[in-house]
């Protein structure tokens, strides 16, 4: 029905001028709880989410990535250190950052279409332009036939795609996604990577994507931040210099991609070891020596 929209997207390409938005985190700390129960989750963590790039953050699960997102979103405050957006400190949630939280879900009481249109409507922008973009996105994520269904009538993968569309329609300066494709089977996951990368490549606004999946990270990222275990900080940064647009097949066969993957795995393996040895230096050394001998 709307095939012409798939070919060219007037709404998305023309109306979306490029924003330049950079987020900088400098020496931030964050603990939960107080006194003897305090738990340090983020410790002396610094990183930059560069403007008009897709920055992917990867780290062991439970290391504090979602906590960092709460801080960037402005729902939580840092204990010390500062996070800035284009130079001004982040203190509150704001329209300039759109966050797809790890546990965020579609509103069960709204249809797919109403969910997608929620952002524009809430901001009083229920215009023809917004409706066109909703059509475009519905088509793009393959939910055209499901527009009048409620979330519980959609499969897990469809729900994720609808969530993605609900976020993308808002043209945020910065889009932040916390493990948006968690829990999908490999087949749907790879399809989602291609959708998402395609949507990103249309406007190249600043994107920040959190994951625990190495293949996902390498396929999507312009820049890759590798995090340490709890309490987290930036372990290392890798520029993924594989040209865009990428296809799954290209990336799988790319020597450069495999090289990066090995490097990332080594780093993550070391972090996993640390958590395995419970933070004890001696145990870590032992494990380290043992794993070297085993090679």
């Amino acid at each position: 029905m709307n095939t012409s929209l798939t070919e060219e997207s007037p709404a998305l390409t023309s109306a979306r001028e490029q924003n330049t938005s950079e987020i900088v985190a400098k020496n931030i700390y964050k603990s939960y709880g107080a006194g003897p129960f305090a738990k340090e989750v983020v410790s002396d963590c610094s990183f930059t989410i560069e403007s008009n790039k897709l920055t992917v953050m990867i780290g062991p699960s439970g290391c504090g990535k979602s906590t960092l997102i709460q801080l960037i979103a402005g729902f939580e405050a840092t204990d010390s250190g500062e996070i800035t957006l284009n130079g001004s400190p982040i203190t509150d949630p704001g329209k300039d950052r759109l966050v797809l939280f790890q546990e965020s879900a579609l509103f069960p009481w709204m249809t797919t279409y109403d969910n997608i249109m929620y952002g524009p409507r809430a901001r009083g922008e229920d215009t023809k332009d917004a409706a066109d973009q909703a059509e475009f996105l519905l088509n793009k994520v393959g939910l055209d036939a499901f527009r009048d269904k409620y979330p519980q009538q959609l499969s897990g993968g469809m729900q994720r795609r609808a969530e993605l569309a609900r976020a993308m329609i808002n043209k945020p300066e910065v889009m932040i996604l916390d493990e948006p494709f968690r829990g999908l089977d490999n087949m749907s996951k790879e399809l989602m990577w291609e959708y998402y990368a395609g949507l990103y490549e249309e406007d190249r606004n600043t994107n920040f994507f959190v994951t625990t999946d190495i293949d996902e990270a390498i396929f999507l990222a312009d820049r890759l931040l590798i995090m340490t275990n709890l309490p987290t900080s930036t372990r290392s940064v890798i520029e993924i210099d594989i040209p865009r647009p990428r296809t799954i097949e290209e990336v799988v066969n790319s020597a450069r991609a495999n090289e990066i993957k090995k490097e990332v795995m080594t780093l993550l393996h070391e972090e996993a070891m640390k958590s395995f040895s419970g933070g004890s230096k001696a145990a870590a050394d032992f494990l380290d020596a043992y794993s070297k001998r085993a090679d």
Binding site: L98, E103, S104, F107, G119, A122, R123, R166
Partner: peptide, 17 residues
């Protein structure tokens, strides 16, 4: 679930909305 309110606020809804 608090995540619904957070999602709404992120999408630009004010307190009343």
């Amino acid at each position: 679930d608090e995540s619904y309110s957070r999602a709404a606020r992120c999408l630009g809804a004010n307190r009343w909305q």
